[in-house]
Amino acid sequence: MKKQTIATLDYLGISSASICLVHCLLFPLLPFIPIGISHNHYIDLFFALLGLFVVVKILKTNTKWYIKIILTVSMVIIFCSVFFTLLFHQHTSLLYFGGMGMIVGHVLNFKNQRH
């Protein structure tokens, strides 16, 4: 894959992981604000699938092995958290760790591709 395509995937990955992390941090606060918005678990699943798409594309490149491990472990953590939320309707803190791992993995990959 070209470096430009990988950089675009990293921008998409960093952006979606950051938006997902903000979403996960803000939505638990919404019950305290009387605006009538409730949390939909399928939004979490959408962010997870978007992240999976980007990670799978990056895994097919010649990215360093430790970056692939960081991204893969982060995706596994995110999917475990999302499925736990969908099944039991309880949030776990795993999602925050997975989101931070995704951001770190994409930033490392972006910096690695620049050299």
Rank of each mutant, 00 (worst) to 15 (best):
S93R: 11
G98E: 02
Y96P: 03
G36L: 10
I6H: 07
L9Y: 14
N112L: 04
Q90M: 13
C20Y: 15
L29W: 05
D10W: 00
I103P: 03
N112Y: 08
H41P: 09
V107R: 01
K64Y: 04
F97T: 04
S93Y: 14
P34S: 15
L50Q: 13
F88C: 07
Y66V: 07
F88Y: 15
N109D: 12
L45F: 11
L52S: 15
L12Q: 08
L25I: 13
F84P: 01
V104Y: 08
L45G: 00
V73G: 05
L50A: 14
V73K: 06
L87R: 09
L30V: 08
S81I: 13
R114G: 14
I69Y: 03
K68E: 05
I58C: 12
L26G: 00
F79V: 13
F47R: 06
A7K: 08
Y11R: 03
R114V: 14
Q113K: 02
K64C: 05
F53Q: 05
H23G: 01
I78P: 00
L94V: 10
V73M: 10
F47G: 01
T85W: 04
L30D: 01
F27P: 00
S16W: 06
L87C: 06
V107F: 02
F88G: 03
H23R: 05
L52V: 13
V73C: 06
Q90D: 07
I14V: 15
V56F: 13
G36V: 11
H106T: 06
G51E: 06
L86E: 03
F47K: 04
K2I: 08
H39F: 04
V55M: 12
S15R: 06
F83W: 14
C80Y: 06
H106S: 10
F97R: 02
I33S: 05
